[in-house]
């Protein structure tokens, strides 16, 4: 949650930098802001802005339009946020080597089908958008909801198929990791998967952008033709929840990409990890993982402020006619390759 607030700040700062502006630099907390040099510096960075934003959402007047379907209207933001936060449970964010030299993942729950769990739970997130659009009972949100459900179904396919080669390589015979995210990261100790599975990585990245409703694909919002999209009728804190959910999805997407393709907490391709065993090494590996996630979040924001939005039919064409055949072709190619290696 805290990371979400600061991701919003990062978004505003980076977008203003890209557009040649300064971004938020006025908010000042009483005590820390009064420290001579440090206070001015932090204020200039806008580090206190998220607190002000959050309070603003809390204290705004809650307006409920008269024409909405009440139950679902209140339920929708909750459904949007819950899956995004639930998926964090299975993310391994570091590793711990105990005295016997055994590597343990740092994760709340290390399921052997961790990646499928993330796919399953995040596919529930679309109900938040669909219900919000439907419960608002007016035209723009409704169009946003219809678009978003169509888009989610289309890109989920490409997402799932693009990732299969990764697991086929990672779960080689003899390893008993199955589809766990920890196993995938451990298999990238020497070589990051993005280097020798670039096509999978590309398809996965595009599909993740579509699944998180980020800008080249934000059909559900697209403020130029749908006003605000699915959250047009929402205000104050309920809009705040949608907003936080969007950034939680971005952070989740970046974290999954880092785990699957950029080596998780491993240092650099080809180099052994410099982290020592024990607690220090565990903390260092977790920090390195967080740094990589930060870079990916920056990438998400960067794309958003540099690329224009696709037209709706272009989104559908890209999903069904380009990404899905590419992903299937990639899968068949890798299967043949593995079979060939087995024969030789």
């Amino acid at each position: 949650m805290g990371m979400c607030a600061y991701a919003v700040l990062a978004e505003r700062k980076i977008c203003s930098y890209i557009q040649g502006r300064v971004g938020p630099n006025r908010t000042r907390l009483p005590l820390i802001g009064d420290v001579p040099i440090l206070g001015d510096f932090l204020t200039g960075l806008g580090l206190f802005q998220p607190a002000a934003d959050g309070l603003k959402f809390l204290f705004k007047e809650e307006i409920t339009p008269g024409h909405v379907k009440l139950g679902y209207y209140y339920l929708a933001p909750i459904i949007a946020l819950t899956p995004a936060l639930t998926t964090m449970v299975v993310l391994p964010f570091g590793r711990y080597i105990d005295d016997a030299g055994v590597v343990h993942p740092l994760a709340l729950a290390n399921l052997d089908v961790g990646f499928l769990f993330i796919l399953a739970i995040s596919s529930l997130g679309v109900y938040g958008i669909v219900l919000a659009g439907w419960a608002s009972n007016s035209k723009y949100p409704f169009l946003g909801a219809i678009r978003s459900s169509a888009q989610m179904i289309s890109y989920e396919l490409a997402l799932g198929v693009s990732i299969l080669p990764v697991f086929m390589w990672a779960a080689a015979p003899g390893s008993d990791y199955g589809m766990s995210l920890f196993g995938v990261v451990q298999s990238q100790e020497t070589l990051w998967l993005i280097i020798w599975q670039p096509l999978s990585a590309l398809i996965f990245l595009v599909a993740i952008f579509a699944e998180t409703n980020r800008l080249p694909f934000d059909m559900a919002e697209s403020e130029t033709d749908l006003v605000g999209g699915f959250h047009t009728e929402y205000g104050a804190f309920k809009f705040g929840i949608f907003f936080v959910a969007e950034y939680a999805h971005i952070i989740m997407g970046s974290a999954i990409f880092v785990l699957l393709f950029v080596g998780g907490w491993h240092f650099l391709p080809g180099l052994p990890d410099p982290w020592p065993a024990g607690i220090t090494g565990a903390i260092l590996s977790a920090l390195w993982f967080l740094a990589k996630v930060g870079v990916m979040v920056f990438f998400f924001i960067w794309i958003r402020w540099t690329l224009p939005r696709f037209r709706y039919d272009q989104v559908m064409t890209l999903g069904w006619k380009i990404l899905l055949p590419l992903a299937v072709g990639n899968l068949v190619f890798n299967t043949l390759l593995i079979a060939l290696i087995d024969v030789l």
């Binding site: 499928l116 796919l119 596919s123 529930l124 669909v130 409704f142 219809i146 169509a150 989610m152």
Partner: peptide, 25 residues
């Protein structure tokens, strides 16, 4: 766990989104 996740992924995640889509459309 595997069956449970498939149940959520296929039925709750994909099939019902289509159902809702059709109902709303």
């Amino acid at each position: 766990y595997f069956l449970a996740i498939l149940q959520v992924l296929v039925y709750a995640g994909a099939v019902m989104v289509l159902f809702l889509f059709i109902i709303m459309l």
